[in-house]
Design a binder for these strands. Sequence first.
DNA 1: TAGCAACTTTCTGTATACACAGTGGGATTT
DNA 2: AAATCCCACTGTGTATACAGAAAGTTGCTA
Lengths: 225, 225
Amino acid sequence: MAITLRASDRAYQRLRDEIVDWELPPGSALGEVEQSTRLGVSRTPIREALARLTADGLVAPQTGRGLVVTDISTDNIREMFEVRQALEMQAARLAALRGDPVVFAVLEREFLAVPALLDQDDPARHNYYGLVARFDDAVDDATANPYLVTALRSLRTHLVRVRRLAKDNPARLSAAAAEHLTIVQAILDRDADLAAHATHVHLHRAMRSALDSVETASPSILPSA
Amino acid sequence: MAITLRASDRAYQRLRDEIVDWELPPGSALGEVEQSTRLGVSRTPIREALARLTADGLVAPQTGRGLVVTDISTDNIREMFEVRQALEMQAARLAALRGDPVVFAVLEREFLAVPALLDQDDPARHNYYGLVARFDDAVDDATANPYLVTALRSLRTHLVRVRRLAKDNPARLSAAAAEHLTIVQAILDRDADLAAHATHVHLHRAMRSALDSVETASPSILPSA
DNA sequence: TAGCAACTTTCTGTATACACAGTGGGATTT
DNA sequence: AAATCCCACTGTGTATACAGAAAGTTGCTA
């Protein structure tokens, strides 16, 4: 049975989802009373939710009074990937040292099956993103490092926000699957250097793809400067 | 004029300092009413402070009801340094690429002066830690990467908590100054690889020193398991 | 005596009330 | 007509009241 989560948790998740999904675009002002009436709870849990969002960097204090949804520039995207590279290369190294072969053997088989999956229809895309999420979880788990996992989780929130802008095309998904497969196999071979370098390559391509996609598809959403 | 900070901010800083300084040792229960009477504010700002401490990982929900100060094992220390290595090597690389030569030239001169400083009395130690803090700030600033800075800041809280346990001896301080000097000079030379590798070396030695110091000086504070 | 159950107490989560500060608008004066 | 000052209002920060849940305690029963 799922623990009944608190109103503040629900408010946090709701607001975070709305920001990440760009329903609340950058610059949106978030007043406490406004949100409390909208979400049907009192100001107290809303305050707690907004405090967490501020800590996450999804929301920032405006000049003077009030909070606004933060914006994301292409420079921000590059900066995110600089951090992501550092953290995920280390995570891949640690997973190669400590990973459970059984878990990653299953993932290997799944990534091998992706090309067939991508020939199918749209639900396949959800399946693929679900697979990547399971891969991330497996790596997180394999690192056995709560500090690393915390840092990665925090960063991933922002990365998901970018991904919602920069829809991947099928060609990119196919290439990404091959890159993931290389990482998984390196982990299975306990080859830490290869796992790290394959992660580097993957992230380099992922960033290129994201930047290209964002710059062509939705330049209007990004800050004009 | 300094902005009058809110009661919740003061409560957060106070509690965080007490945890980092081991005045509130691991396992200490933090009740809301208890802390609100102790700090002389109402439960509302205390709740906000405790929520932030929980997000920081300094406090965690106990089984059932209540929050307790988290403990730190020697494994945790190794894990922190795994993350620190990833983040600070990347930061050193970026600082080498983007750093302001004037700033780092000043730091170089200061690190060169450390050996003379360490011959003096106890206040010298404060000066040295202040210098290291300025070095960290300079690197943070040079990376021009808010996500990296956020991740590093979060981690440093835990590292300071470890440092409070593991007092550095003068020999270690002297060696650390030399290591810092190497990093600064690599940044000045715009040699990203050298800056990263010198950081790696520095952190490896710092971790060894911390683990040795903790294991000999205060094994009682760490979890028995 | 041991185990279980009901009650009491205490603490958390939420709502609301209150005080204060900052901002915008309007009116008055030059 | 423009600028400045004052007032009102909106919104944040803090305190407190209230409800519900969980842990401890006490008493009863087997």
